[in-house]
Measured scan of single mutants.
Amino acid sequence: GTVKVQGITIKVPNPDKAYKIAKKLAKKYNLTVTRKGNTIKVE
């Protein structure tokens, strides 16, 4: 899958794990995490 952070896309082998990490970071930096299948977008 991929993770998008402010325009940066990161390929990740485990979208579930990445999503959990993204959620933690999002809370810390007051961002929104959206997930569509293997693509995770943080904005």
Rank of each mutant, 00 (worst) to 15 (best):
N14G: 03
A22D: 00
I8M: 08
K23L: 14
K11V: 12
A22Q: 00
K28N: 05
N14Q: 02
K11G: 08
N30M: 07
A26F: 09
T9R: 06
Q6P: 06
V5E: 03
V12E: 01
L25F: 07
Y19E: 08
K4S: 12
I21A: 07
K20N: 12
K4C: 15
Q6E: 09
E43V: 13
V42Y: 04
K24C: 15
Q6G: 15
K17M: 12
T39W: 11
G1A: 08
N30L: 05
K4V: 15
P15Y: 10
I8N: 02
T9I: 13
G1S: 07
K28W: 15
K17T: 09
T2D: 05
V42L: 12
L31F: 10
G37L: 01
G7R: 07
I8V: 11
T2F: 15
N30V: 03
G7T: 08
L25M: 06
T9M: 11
I21V: 09
V3T: 04
K20R: 10
K23Y: 03
N14D: 13
L31E: 04
N38L: 03
V12W: 08
P13S: 13
V5P: 04
K17V: 11
I21T: 04
R35S: 03
I40M: 02
V33E: 00
T39A: 08
I40G: 00
N14E: 03
P13M: 13
N14M: 11
T39H: 09
V33R: 00
P13Y: 09
K36N: 11
Y29K: 04
I40W: 07
T2N: 07
G37M: 01
L25H: 01
G1Y: 11
T34H: 04
L25G: 00
Y19H: 07
D16I: 05
V42N: 04
N14R: 05
K20G: 07
K41D: 06
A22W: 15
T39N: 08
L25C: 13
I10V: 10
K27G: 08
P15Q: 05
T9Y: 08
I21D: 04
G1N: 05
Q6V: 13
I8A: 04
T32R: 08
K4W: 14
Y19Q: 04
I21G: 02
K20Q: 13
K20A: 13
V3L: 11
D16T: 07
L25E: 00
I10Q: 01
G7L: 09
V5A: 05
K17Q: 12
G7Y: 10
T2L: 13
I10G: 04
I40T: 01
I8F: 07
I8E: 02
T2I: 13
K27P: 09
A26Y: 05
P13L: 13
Q6A: 15
I10T: 02
K4I: 15
K41Q: 11
L31G: 03
I8R: 08
K23P: 00
K36F: 11
K28E: 09
K36V: 14
K36E: 14
K27E: 12
P13A: 14
K23G: 06
V12K: 01
E43G: 09
G7C: 15
V42K: 01
N38R: 07
K27R: 09
K23R: 10
T34W: 07
P15V: 15
G7F: 09
V3D: 03
P13C: 15
G1I: 11
K24A: 12
K24F: 13
T9V: 11
T32Q: 10
I40L: 04
N38Q: 06
T34L: 01
I21S: 02
I10C: 15
T39E: 12
T34K: 08
V3A: 07
Y29V: 05
K11M: 12
K41C: 15
K11N: 10
V33W: 00
K36H: 12
D16K: 10
G1E: 06
K4Q: 14
I10L: 06
N38A: 05
K20T: 09
K20L: 12
V5M: 10
R35I: 09
N14W: 12
K41V: 15
G37E: 03
T39R: 05
V12M: 06
K17P: 02
V5D: 03
Y29W: 08
K27W: 05
T2W: 15
V42H: 02
G7Q: 06
K4A: 08
Y19M: 09
I8T: 06
Y19I: 08
V33Y: 00
K41H: 12
Q6H: 15
V5Y: 14
Y29H: 09
V5K: 06
T39Y: 09
K41I: 15
V33L: 04
A26Q: 03
K24E: 10
T32E: 07
K17D: 11
T9P: 04
A26L: 11
K17A: 11
T39C: 14
Q6T: 10
P13Q: 11
I8P: 01
L25R: 01
V3E: 04
V12D: 02
K20E: 14
G1L: 11
A26G: 06
Y19P: 01
D16W: 09
N38H: 04
T2K: 11
K4T: 14
G7E: 04
G37R: 02
K24S: 12
Q6K: 10
N30H: 13
K41Y: 15
A18P: 00
Q6N: 13
A18M: 10
A22C: 13
K36Q: 13
E43L: 08
T9S: 11
K28P: 00
K11I: 12
V42T: 03
N38V: 03
P13R: 13
V12A: 04
K24I: 14
I21P: 00
V33Q: 00
K17H: 08
L31A: 04
G1T: 07
P13H: 11
A22S: 03
K4N: 09
K11L: 13
E43Y: 11
N14L: 07
I21W: 14
K11Y: 14
K17G: 04
R35D: 00
I10E: 01
R35T: 06
Y29E: 04
T39D: 11
T2C: 15
A22E: 00
K4P: 06
P13G: 12
L31W: 10
A18C: 15
T32A: 06
K4M: 14
N30I: 04
N38E: 04
